[in-house]
Simulated scan of single mutants.
Amino acid sequence: MDISIEPGRADHLDGIHALVLEWGYTASRLRTKAWFEAITDSPSHQIFVALSGGSVVGWIAVEKRLFLSELFVAEITGLVVGSRARRAGIGQLLVQSAEDWSSSMGLPRVVVRSNVTHLESHGFYPAVGYTQSKTTHVYTKDLKQPGSEP
C-alpha cells in the first residue's frame, strides 16, 4: 500500500468524515466540516491525512495546548485509521507527522488521551514510544445558553 501524509485540505473532508463515522462518532457532515474548518483556520491546530490512491485512509489532529505544569505542549486530539488500512504502519506515520509539527512549533512534549474502550490504542501508543502517565475520569456539564428553552 503506497501511503503519503499531507496536511488536511477541504477536498479531503468526505474521507475525513467517513472515518469520523467509522470511529464511532455521530457527527453530521456539517459538524465535521465546521470542526475541520476551525482546525485549519487555527495556527494552534493541525490535521494530517494519510492518502492511498488518492483516498483518505487515516487522519490525525494535533493542537498546541496550555498546561500549568509545562506551559505549552502538543496534544493529539484524534487519530483514526480506516479498518481496511490498519496494521500497515499508517498510524505510526501519522503520529510522526504530528510529532514533527509539534517540534516545529517548539513544543517539548506530546500528550495523547485514549478512551478506555479503544482497546487497540492501548497497545499502539506504547509501541510508538508513549508512556502511560495517569488515568483519569472525565466529567461534563451542559450549560444553559442565553435564550435557550428551560
Rank of each mutant, 00 (worst) to 15 (best):
M1D: 00
M1N: 04
S4M: 03
P7D: 09
G8Q: 01
R9I: 09
D11P: 03
H17W: 01
L19P: 08
V20S: 08
G24V: 08
T32E: 01
T32I: 14
A38G: 08
A38T: 04
I39P: 10
P43L: 05
S44D: 15
L51C: 03
G54S: 11
S55D: 13
S55R: 13
S55P: 07
W59C: 10
W59L: 06
A61M: 02
V62S: 08
K64P: 12
R65H: 13
R65T: 14
L68R: 13
L68D: 14
S69H: 15
E70D: 13
E70M: 13
L71K: 11
L71D: 13
V73N: 12
I76L: 15
G78M: 02
V80Y: 08
R84W: 03
R86D: 03
A88H: 05
Q92R: 09
L93S: 03
L94T: 08
L94C: 04
Q96T: 05
D100W: 06
S103P: 13
S104T: 15
P108W: 09
N115Y: 03
N115F: 05
L119W: 01
P126Y: 02
A127Q: 07
A127L: 00
V128M: 02
G129H: 03
Q132P: 02
Q132M: 07
T135H: 01
T136Q: 10
T140I: 15
T140K: 12
